[in-house]
Simulated assay, not measured.
Amino acid sequence: MKPQSEGQLVFHRFIRHRAAMVGLAILLLIVIVSYSSVGVRVAGWHIPGWWKYDHTALLPIENGGHPTRDHPFGQDVVGHDVFALTMKGVQTSIYVMVVLSVVACLMGITVGAIAGYYRGWVDHALMRLTDLVITFPVIVIGAVLGKLVQSNGPTALAVALGLIFWTTLARLVRGEFLTLREREFVDAARVAGASGFRIIRKHLLPNAMGVIIVNTTLLMAAAVLLETGLSFLGFGISSPDISLGKMISDYQAAFSTRPWLFWWPGFFIIVLALSVNFVGDGLRDAFDPRQQRLPSARWRFIR
Rank of each mutant, 00 (worst) to 15 (best):
L132G: 15
V140T: 04
I30M: 03
N215S: 09
W299M: 12
H66C: 08
W50C: 00
I47C: 12
G266R: 04
L294W: 10
L180Q: 00
E184I: 06
R300F: 11
A57P: 06
F287Q: 11
L100P: 00
P206N: 01
H17T: 14
I61M: 00
F255M: 11
A192S: 14
W260H: 02
S238A: 14
F83N: 09
R183I: 02
L28F: 12
L106C: 03
W166N: 03
L169K: 12
L59P: 06
V22H: 10
R300H: 09
F235K: 00
T56F: 14
G196S: 04
A143R: 13
W299G: 05
A189G: 03
L180R: 01
P137H: 03
V98I: 11
R13E: 10
A254P: 00
G116H: 04
A104K: 03
V78Y: 06
F83E: 09
N152G: 09
Y95F: 14
D76A: 08
Y251P: 03
G65Y: 01
W263I: 14
I61S: 00
Q91Y: 10
F255R: 10
A189W: 05
A189N: 01
M127V: 00
M21F: 08
T68H: 02
A160R: 06
I200G: 04
F287W: 12
G210L: 13
N277P: 01
R18W: 11
T216Y: 02
Y117L: 13
H66T: 10
M87I: 14
R303L: 02
P206S: 02
D131R: 00
L161T: 06
A170T: 08
R258S: 02
V276G: 05
E176G: 00
G39P: 07
L283K: 12
S239I: 15
D250Y: 14
P154M: 05
Y117D: 12
H203K: 02
V140S: 02
R13I: 09
V138A: 04
K52L: 02
L59A: 03
A57V: 06
R258P: 01
M107H: 00
E176L: 01
I47D: 10
T56G: 05
N63K: 15
L85F: 07
S5L: 14
I200S: 02
K2Y: 15
L274T: 15
G229M: 04
T110M: 09
L59D: 04
R69Y: 13
R201K: 05
V99S: 07
I269S: 02
W51L: 00
A189L: 04
V33W: 03
A43T: 07
P72H: 06
S239Q: 15
A273G: 12
T168S: 08
R18Y: 11
I61K: 01
G74Y: 01
L225K: 13
A189T: 04
P289F: 05
S36A: 14
K88Y: 06
K88M: 09
L244P: 03
L132Y: 15
G7E: 13
R181M: 11
I47G: 10
V111S: 05
R258W: 00
H12G: 14
M220V: 06
P265H: 13
R293A: 14
D250R: 15
L244Q: 02
A170S: 08
M220C: 08
S151K: 15
N63Q: 15
V31F: 14
M209C: 08
T135C: 10
N215D: 06
L244F: 07
G7W: 14
L294V: 12
S37V: 03
R201P: 03
Q91A: 08
A143M: 13
R18L: 12
G175F: 06
G236C: 03
I30V: 04
F73A: 04
